[in-house]
Design a protein around this nucleic acid. Structure first.
Lengths: 211, 211
DNA sequence: ACAGTTGCATACTTTGTGGTAGATTTCAAA
DNA sequence: TTTGAAATCTACCACAAAGTATGCAACTGT
């Protein structure tokens, strides 16, 4: 057996552990979940987990870090592109929405269990969050400078928009009333309004309403 | 000593216990805080707490319940009034913002420690949240029917607006860059845009931008 | 001043759970 | 088949923290 395969198996096992831990942390809370429960779900015993992770907090750190990394990537990808800020903001929000919906447990666990994340992971997460805010704010700022967005305070608007989407982790349910695509479309619409963008399609309507 | 005074003293002691517990739960998490720590802060011992509360979870229940009750009241007061939906929504958001800022710890602890709230308190809280959503949604619906708001999905817009404000508990810092009043004003502005309201004051600007 | 009651501290028990030492199995390679 | 090492289990420990039995002290009312 090549050692490359062993690594691959080890990675797979880590993934399975994280998967069950994430679900249980999400459902019962971090402190409300015992490692024996996680082990039981995997049909293994506690030392199995300890042979793949330093300790319980390391699981939490990995779960939280992944959620943050994906959120950042969603915003960063759209930000780093060139082109119309409105287009790019829409894309950023769409991706972010999908991350929150697809990785709800990671995001929820991160925000709730913040306090128990190991210092090292916590530092990395803080950096990513700062980057997230910076890039989202930059998108708004660009739109402002081109005169297509209108907000009084970019920092506050960034927090408002970020919060509106992040908050989805509290109410989103898989297989709910609306499709993921539909939800993302709607949220984009709401965000665009929030930043004072008058989309070409209803600019006429707004004009009519205003006069 | 009249027995009325004894009750009053007992109530005061309960308040002090809740005050310290709330602060510690906020800073360190519910499970991250021991009752000995709470007692120490009050310069008493653990049995003092147990002579005023059933158990640790009862503290959490009271803290969370208060946060929810105040949030509901903010929205309900404005909702139950008569008059212009835009005016009343603005008022609702203003009050809600102030509740989140003034009672940040209650709100934060509630959302984070959800899982550990005793069933009885949890039921009461769920009812209040349902009422909160219902009244906020009703305000949006009213504005829609009068043609002064514009959203595709009232339910989703309600969640977005509620989330945008609730989320403040994650970033608000007492004595920060902006005054509470200023923050509330700004958030109202953002919410109004989100629900598609064209305030009289900048309707002209929007028209200019649109044509 | 005295009796009775309330309120709280001292000091203890109990339980749950994170973490680990050492035995045991599994499995690849010779 | 044998061997050695890696992986995993059995069985255990240590300890923290929730919750409590007991008694003392400080008030209250007579």
């Amino acid at each position: 057996m090549r050692s490359g395969m062993r690594d691959e198996i080890a990675r797979l096992k880590r993934e399975r552990i994280l998967e069950e831990a994430r679900q249980l942390f999400f459902e019962q809370g971090y402190q409300g979940t015992t490692l024996d429960q996680v082990a039981r779900r995997l049909e293994v015993t506690k030392p199995f987990i300890y042979s793949h992770f330093e300790n319980k907090a390391a699981l939490l750190g990995d779960i939280a870090e992944r959620g943050t990394r994906l959120s950042l990537k969603a915003i960063a990808d759209a930000h780093d592109r060139k082109g119309d800020p409105a287009e790019r903001l829409g894309q950023a929000i769409r991706e972010f929405c999908h991350v929150v919906m697809a990785h709800q447990a990671n995001i929820a666990v991160y925000f709730r269990e913040d306090k128990y994340i190991p210092a090292a992971a916590s530092r990395r997460i803080d950096e990513m969050r700062a980057e997230f805010d910076k890039k989202l704010a930059a998108l708004l700022q660009e739109g402002l400078e081109q005169g297509i967005f209108k907000v009084d305070d970019v920092r506050l608007a960034t927090l408002a928009v970020g919060g509106m989407i992040s908050w989805m982790f509290t109410w989103y349910r898989t297989g709910g009333r609306l499709s993921d695509e539909h939800i993302a479309d709607q949220m984009i619409e709401l965000v665009m309004r929030t930043v004072g963008y008058n989309s070409p399609k209803d600019a006429g309507q707004l004009t009519d309403a205003a006069v």
